[in-house]
């Protein structure tokens, strides 16, 4: 089912958790909400679910305005960060709960409910554990029961709040692949929250980057990484270095010299240059480059993380060098130019 979030605002007692957020989600898509803590990811997810009411704006399920529908009527599947499994029920009873409590007119036969639950257990690779209680399961297993429970009601959309947040790195990676797999097989429209960018970039069809209650950018993993539209996204996704520069007549200046980068489409004035620390070329002479003295160089595996003191103000900037580049440095002096970069005018 298609989802549309239209100009939604949410305030908690005057505190704005979401400011005028709009988002289109295609049917069958796997979407990640990515952002730092407190950026409003959970709030947006809960608004879609109907666990929270928007202060303004609407949420459409297909063509239908669902803003005033209760959570029960939206037919969603929600997986909570801490699973929220019913601890007094067995795994099987947890999974069948959503079907068992239906009115008899909409409730499948008992045998059918059981068959469906066992099928789901098989899907989440927990066959044979149906009689266990949640406390008798590991974190990863609980997580999978929570997912099976949410899918049992055949929801229009699956909403997952930091589904792997409480698990260790190894299990996370496994479950990540497994979730992608399940998504491809079942085709549910899925929105999941994470603050792990690797998870978002690897798993999602499209990533929604959020910051301070706003959506900064929506795009595929490539778009987000290669064409970040704001300083925040550039800084948040992957490694980044930045340098305060000045633009004059389409030339980028750092203090009293040009650094060999054109910026003809930008207005004159102060700006910030962003680039990836590894995405640079070393230059020999310096008629248009960034030059400075190496202050610290730490080697991590095959990469030298090198801090450079540039300019008169002793600004520090970090670049990553490979073995050859590192060996080519003479006397602690370095001159380089970013290969790919973005310049954002300072307002």
């Amino acid at each position: 089912m298609e989802l549309r979030v239209a100009n939604v605002r949410k305030e908690f007692e005057r505190f704005p958790a979401l400011n005028d957020v709009s988002l289109d989600i295609r049917s069958g898509e796997l979407i990640a909400l990515l952002g730092p803590s407190g950026s409003g990811k959970t709030t947006l997810l809960r608004l879609i679910a109907g666990l929270e009411r928007p202060s303004a704006g609407s949420i459409f399920f297909g063509d239908e305005d669902a803003s005033h529908k209760s959570v029960q009527d939206r037919n969603i599947g929600f997986v909570f960060q801490h699973y929220a499994l019913f601890r007094h029920m067995t795994v099987l009873d947890n999974i069948t709960f959503g079907l068992r409590i239906r009115k008899s007119s909409r409730r499948p036969e008992k045998a059918e409910i059981r068959r469906r639950a066992l099928e789901l257990l098989d899907l989440v690779q927990l066959s044979g554990l149906e009689k266990r209680y949640p406390t008798q399961l590991s974190g990863g297993q609980r997580q999978r029961v929570a997912l099976a429970r949410a899918m049992a009601v055949e929801p229009n959309v699956l909403l997952l709040d930091e589904p792997f947040g409480a698990l260790d790195a190894q299990v996370r990676k496994e479950l990540r692949r497994w979730l992608r797999d399940i998504h491809d097989r079942t085709g549910h429209t899925t929105v999941f929250v994470t603050h792990d960018q690797e998870e978002a970039l690897e798993l999602a069809d499209r990533v929604v980057v959020m910051s301070k209650g706003n959506i900064e950018q929506v795009g595929t993993a490539d778009e987000i990484y290669d064409k970040p539209v704001s300083p925040f996204v550039f800084g948040f996704i992957g490694q980044s270095s930045h340098l305060k520069v000045r633009i004059e007549n389409g030339e980028v200046w750092f203090h009293d010299r040009v650094i060999g980068i054109k910026a003809s489409d930008l207005p004159d004035g102060p700006a910030t240059l962003y680039f990836r620390p590894h995405d640079i070329e070393l230059t020999d002479g310096c008629s248009g480059c960034i030059a400075g003295l190496v202050t610290v160089s730490r080697r991590i595996a095959g990469t030298w993380h090198t801090e450079v003191d540039v300019g008169a103000g002793h600004e520090k900037i970090e670049v990553s060098l490979n073995a050859d580049q590192s060996a080519a440095l003479k006397g602690g002096r370095i001159a380089f130019r970013p290969r790919h970069y973005r310049i954002f005018p300072t307002n």
Binding site: L51, Q72, F86, F97, G98, I101, V153
Partner: peptide, 16 residues
């Protein structure tokens, strides 16, 4: 309220 929200999201009424 986690468990209650889970139940509601699965379609349970307030009473259920």
């Amino acid at each position: 309220t986690g468990d209650e929200e889970a139940a509601l999201s699965l379609g349970a009424s307030g009473w259920q």
